[in-house]
């Protein structure tokens, strides 16, 4: 099973050049049944990554471009009167896909944002009184642009918490960018990607990930990390239990990708910046949610054993 996953990673890396660790983290996020927040400048390959993920994993893909005039109905779908049947017929919105790319999520109004975020949390949507289940698996990749903040609605902490990981792709390395410039356009490569997993395999993998063993000693480490965020003065607030659950779940997926059926502290440390970065805030920094220095502090100072 892990061999197939590694084939998936290799296939995605063919398209998204030089971003091995981010790709690995993104897959980890998917395996841990979490949603992903990509925070980067435009044109860094966010959409390509999402597309490639969807194709390789054999998921249906939908993209929603968030704008300030986007309404919840545009995401969830609306009922339209059908002359033939003489009744309202529900037209599902783009959210009824297995992998949804919510592009520039911070451009939409809070009302539209929360429509998406509710769906992410519940795994179902309620439209006009009827509850409709979202497809399984359901995976949201949201992107936002940290640089231009004009006319945006920053996600509040409570909604940031819904994303398992926050990743930033960053500029490609020189060699990767050279290959990018010399090679085919990336979009053209996407249709060539073959699905390497099916739904059943993915579900089985997700099932197996949840079974990865976390020993007492390892849980103690996660607890020490959580306690450190709650007791040290440089943290504006401590990690929520959802945060520590997310950390453990992501570490399990990472260990699984590493072909192990048990978690070691290094797994926790590998996913920790992506999982905790957006959940922590420095006490000295009243508005931002950087968390980078705090994450480094946690990695360095909290005893791993």
């Amino acid at each position: 099973m892990q061999a197939r996953l590694e084939a998936c990673l290799a296939a995605i890396n063919q398209v998204v050049l030089g971003k091995d660790s981010q790709v690995r983290l993104a897959v980890t996020c998917l395996l841990a049944r979490g949603h992903l927040l990509l925070e980067d400048l435009p044109g860094m390959g966010k959409t390509t990554l999402s597309h490639a993920l969807a194709r390789v994993m054999g998921l249906s893909f939908q993209r929603i471009q968030f704008t300030s005039d986007l309404l919840p109905g545009d995401i969830l779908g609306t009922s339209v009167f059908d002359k033939q049947s003489g009744g309202f017929v529900f037209h599902p919105g783009p959210i009824f896909a297995e992998l949804v790319l919510a592009d520039e999520i911070n451009r939409a109004t809070p009302k539209s944002q929360s429509a998406l975020l509710e769906a992410m949390e519940e795994g179902q949507v309620t439209i006009e009184g009827a509850t409709r289940a979202l497809p399984q698996p359901f995976f949201v990749i949201a992107t936002q642009n940290p640089a231009s903040q004009g006319g945006t609605f920053a996600l509040p902490e409570s909604q940031l918490d819904r994303f398992l990981m926050r990743l930033s792709l960053g500029y490609p390395a020189r060699a990767a960018e050279r290959a990018l410039l010399l090679g085919q356009p990336r979009r053209e490569l996407l249709p060539d990607l073959q699905p390497l997993l099916d739904h059943a395999a993915l579900a089985a993998i997700q099932q197996a990930v949840a079974q990865v063993r976390a020993s007492d000693a390892l849980v103690d480490y996660v607890l020490r990390l959580a306690e450190a965020t709650r007791s040290q003065p440089q943290f504006a607030w401590g990690l929520s239990p959802r945060g520590s659950l997310a950390l453990l779940a992501a570490a399990r997926a990472w260990a699984y990708l590493d072909r192990r059926d048990y978690v070691i502290p290094e797994d926790v440390q590998a996913v920790l910046p992506a999982v905790l970065g957006h959940r922590l805030r420095e006490a000295a920094d009243a508005s931002g949610h950087g968390g980078g220095a705090l994450v480094q502090w946690l990695l360095r100072e909290v005893p791993a054993l």
Binding site: I264, P265, E266, Q269, L298, L299, R300, E301, V302, P303, A304, L305
Partner: peptide
């Protein structure tokens, strides 16, 4: 060993 260094690293 650094405090934050796991056994494997």
């Amino acid at each position: 060993r650094e405090p934050g260094e796991g056994a494997r690293s």
